[in-house]
Structures are given as structure tokens and as C-alpha cells.
Design a protein around this nucleic acid. Structure first.
Length: 262
DNA sequence: ATGGCAGTTCCTAACTGA
């Protein structure tokens, strides 16, 4: 079984890229982020023609997540509220960043973690708070069935210095601050592991490159798109690879797909 | 080099992203 994650930076702009990629890489489940489209306007047809079932949670202009699956998904829900209840979620579900469903007995959680803007900003505080609520959400999911969970998505956090092209320049900047890394570590301590690092220890492997300053050509990237697996799935994993080919196409997303197989 | 680029909308300016 293959699961991929890809922040497409607008599904309407990128639909042909995604269709072409799925044609060449028929993964079982594709987790999309930053679809930037209300559910009624999602371009469903080209993906349904490829045989995918679609589950979407979007909004106008910003954010938005979607699950594309060759087999129908069970127990699909969007946002934190169905798991945590309205009282502890508050306004967080206004931004569409969470969708989950079950495929082959595996719960897949597709996330678009807030960017955080700059350190000390309101958005940075929002990101840290959102991560605390995410931890409670995942803690609750772990108590349910199935407990085999694959968390996939754009985390907007580089967990370690080897996930950065220039750790010195990035030190203390958003996506690499100690507080963000600590919040993510506290999530992983619930029982999740970074499956990319099961196979690849070296630095220089990235999933996002800035559009500016020839960053992709110079491989000045960040590894911020991740698959985190519970222990049984982690042990079963056969590979986890970053496919940089779509990032090299004309008019690309600034992120590229990451694929895990188990 | 605090620039650079790309997406969106109350669309040619302002915002968000990372």
C-alpha cells in the first residue's frame, strides 16, 4: 500500500500536474494540502476518471485538505470537532486543515499545519496552540480502533537540522524554532515515528523549496512534509521517498510529493 | 543582499505562504 502527501498550492491551478503524477504514480491514497477551494468548486472529475474517490474539506482562498483514494474510505471526518467536541476546539475548525479516513484498516490523518508567519506573531502563537490541540486529537484517535495510524501532511516544521539546507541561517526562524520542534516532539512521543528517517539518514533531502532566488535549482530546501507512523506500520514500511520530479515542471507547486509504502 | 516568487480575491493592491 502506498500513501503520498503533497501540498499543491491550489488544486485548480495544479490539477493537471496531480492528474499526470497519479497516472505515473497510482498511489492508494493521496493526501493534498492547500487546495484553496470551497468543496463545491473542487475539480473532482479528472480524479474520478482516474478511479479515485474524493473526500474534501476546503475553503475560499486559503488552506484546504483532501483525500483521494482508490478504495472508498471508512469513517471519514473533517476538523478536530468530531473527535474532540466543540467546547475544546473553539474556532480552530474555521481553517480547513484536518481530514481523516480509514483505508485497509489504517487510519490516515491528513494535516495542513499552520505556517506561523514569523516568530512572536499572532500566527506563530496560533500555530503552537493548534499543535497542542492536534496532540489531544491524536491522543484520542489512538484510543479508538483502528490504532494503526499514518499521519501525513505539510507540518511546516523541520524537526532536525539535517532537514534544513542552512541550519545556521534558519536557527530560531519559523519552522525551525525550539518551541515548534518541541511541540512536534511531544506529538511524536505519543507513539509516532518519522518513516523517512527509517531509510535515509543524510541531509540534503527536502520537500519544499522557495519559489524565489533559484532555490530549487540550488537545492536550498526544507524537509517539512512528513509521514509519521505508529510502531507496527513503521516496522512494516518498505520505503519512503521524495519525488522531486513535479517540482522541476513549469508552474510547479513549491512542495513536491512524499510517498510511503508498507 | 530583508530581496526574491506565486497563489488568491471585495482582482492591477493587499493578503498569505514558508
Amino acid at each position: 500500500m502506498k500513501i503520498a502527501t503533497w501540498n499543491v498550492n491550489s488544486i485548480r491551478t495544479r490539477s493537471q500536474h496531480v492528474v499526470d503524477w497519479l497516472g505515473q504514480n497510482p498511489v492508494n491514497v493521496l493526501c493534498l494540502q492547500e487546495t484553496k477551494v470551497p468543496d463545491a468548486d473542487f475539480p473532482r472529475l479528472p480524479f474520478e476518471q482516474l478511479g479515485y474517490h474524493l473526500y474534501v474539506s476546503g475553503q475560499k482562498s486559503y488552506n484546504g485538505v483532501a483525500l483521494l483514494s482508490l478504495e472508498p474510505l471508512a469513517d471519514v471526518s473533517t476538523g478536530f470537532e468530531p473527535i474532540l467536541g466543540a467546547s475544546s476546539v473553539g474556532e480552530l475548525d474555521q481553517q480547513k486543515r484536518v481530514i481523516t479516513g480509514v483505508a485497509n484498516g489504517i487510519r490516515i490523518v491528513n494535516l495542513y499545519v499552520p505556517n506561523g508567519a514569523s516568530v512572536g506573531s499572532e500566527k506563530y502563537e496560533y500555530k503552537l496552540y493548534w499543535l497542542k490541540v492536534l496532540r489531544e486529537y491524536l491522543r484520542s484517535l489512538l484510543t479508538k480502533q483502528p490504532s494503526d495510524i499514518c499521519i501525513s501532511g505539510d507540518f511546516n516544521i523541520a524537526l532536525e537540522n539535517r532537514d534544513l539546507h542552512n541550519p545556521d541561517a534558519s536557527k530560531g526562524q519559523v519552522m525551525a524554532t525550539d518551541l515548534e520542534r518541541q511541540a512536534l516532539k511531544e506529538i511524536l512521543e505519543l507513539g509516532f515515528a518519522d518513516v523517512f528517517r527509517k531509510f535515509t539518514a543524510e541531509d540534503g533531502h527536502f520537500s519544499w523549496w522557495d519559489y524565489r532566488a533559484g532555490a530549487f535549482r540550488r537545492n536550498l530546501g526544507w524537509r517539512i512534509d512528513h509521514h509519521y507512523l505508529t510502531s507496527k506500520l513503521y516496522q512494516q514500511a518498505k520505503s519512503c521517498t521524495i519525488d522531486i520530479a513535479p517540482r522541476a515542471l513549469p508552474q510547479p507547486s513549491d512542495h513536491t510529493p512524499v510517498v510511503v509504502e508498507f
